[in-house]
Amino acid sequence: MNNTANFQVDVIIPTKTKYLHLIGSIGEHIAKDLEDFSGDREALAYHLNLVLTEATTNAIKHANSEDPKDTVRVNIDIHEKELVIRVYDHGQGFDLETVPDPEFNQLKENGMGLFFIRTLMDSVIYKNLEGCNMLEIKKLLV
């Protein structure tokens, strides 16, 4: 067992879209530095960048817009065979089950973000916790 395979990245950012680049880049770097990943590393790097960007955008959109000091916390938990992304917001929350996949024959300009997360990752749940909400995304590293 290689101990360096397990580590965690925890970032807290203001609810501003200018930090999306930073969060996305962290995902890209993690994918490129994974020690025992034999799949398509470039594709994984893009997908983690995208999923982190979409999840953080979602948290910023749902954030408490009346509080200028509101923050979004992004936690990435890296294990040998699995990567877990948790994005916490302090907004009203929403019901993930009620968000439909986009209609491909009549694509609208929004609503593709959660589709990307669902399609590119292995599981996604949204939970109301005490005082915040958490979007938890898992990706198997096989």
Binding site: E54, L107, E109, G111
Partner: peptide, 12 residues
């Protein structure tokens, strides 16, 4: 890199 909002802008 393009995310869903970027695709949306081009679609618009």
């Amino acid at each position: 890199f393009v995310d869903s909002s970027g695709l949306g802008a081009l679609l618009s």
